[in-house]
């Protein structure tokens, strides 16, 4: 077993001890918000020009997005515990590479998001979700969601290693909210005033949402898929490079 696999297994054990935070936190608030919001604002689909069959179909990618970002920081907080308890000091005595240790932790965030997103997709399917993309489309959406969750958690890893402050790490959790508000989460572009539309156009959440909508509609928009994947790779590359450098400095102290 590699160091990354060992860290993944260790994180999975910690998650089994605390399943509410590990798996309930990304799932339950996302489902509640998605369900209540579509119930309240279902009338949006009656606005002339609404592009999909139902508002449920419109909000579903938003609910999947929430499963990637709500409750973020679980594994970063566990990493912080490793630093506080001296586990990291013991790991320093082994030849394990810091990059693989962080990769083992971070990849578990992808799994958390996949579990939550799979449940959300399954519930949506029983409620009549339009998924013209079929199984392949669903898998692509899950992969995109897992990628977004992993990349997003890079911010939390960097914060955990540099601040070593649990409150500072968990304080980042609402960071997604303003970015989500000014995207296409709530409604299509034709509802937006021009300033809002400009903000949404350059918002990475919009790229993820529009890519997901296009996959589920059976007409993949490769432009949105490409830019969404590029953003995920860019964010993950930046935050994890910074995290690994900070971790190396910490280990050298």
């Amino acid at each position: 077993m590699s160091a990354a696999q060992l860290m993944f297994a260790r994180t999975a054990t910690q998650a089994r001890r605390n399943p509410g935070v590990a798996f309930g936190q990304p799932l339950i608030p996302s489902l509640l918000i998605g369900t209540i919001f579509t119930a309240l604002f279902g009338a949006v689909e009656e606005i002339r020009g609404f592009p999909l069959a139902s508002y449920d179909d419109w909000v579903l990618p938003g609910t999947l997005f929430l499963s990637a970002v709500v409750g973020a920081g679980f594994t970063a907080a566990e990493l912080l515990r490793d630093i506080e308890t001296g586990f990291i000091d013991r790991v320093r005595l082994t030849p394990a590479d810091p990059a693989s240790l962080i990769a083992g932790r971070a990849s578990f965030e992808g799994l958390r998001a996949v579990v939550a997103a799979t449940v959300i997709l399954a519930i949506a399917t029983t409620r009549g979700l339009t998924n013209e993309g079929g199984i392949l489309g669903a898998l692509a959406v899950l992969a995109l969601t897992a990628g977004f969750a992993t990349a997003w958690n890079g911010i939390f890893f960097y914060s955990a290693i540099t601040t070593r402050n649990r409150a500072a790490v968990l304080g980042l959790q609402p960071l997604f909210f303003p970015i989500m508000l000014f995207s296409t989460w709530f409604g299509p572009r034709f509802l937006m005033p021009s300033w809002f539309e400009q903000v949404a156009r350059f918002n990475p959440v919009t790229w993820y949402l529009d890519a997901t909508r296009s996959i589920l509609s059976g007409h993949p928009d490769w432009g949105f898929i490409g830019i969404s994947v590029a953003f995920i790779v860019g964010l993950a590359g930046t935050t994890f490079s910074l995290s690994i450098s900070a971790y190396r400095r910490l280990a050298a102290e």
Binding site: I47, L181, F182, F186, G187, L191, P193, F196
Partner: peptide, 11 residues
């Protein structure tokens, strides 16, 4: 307030 009043005027 900013997002929803901007977006949902047509409701």
């Amino acid at each position: 307030v900013i997002a929803m009043t901007s977006l949902f005027g047509r409701l």
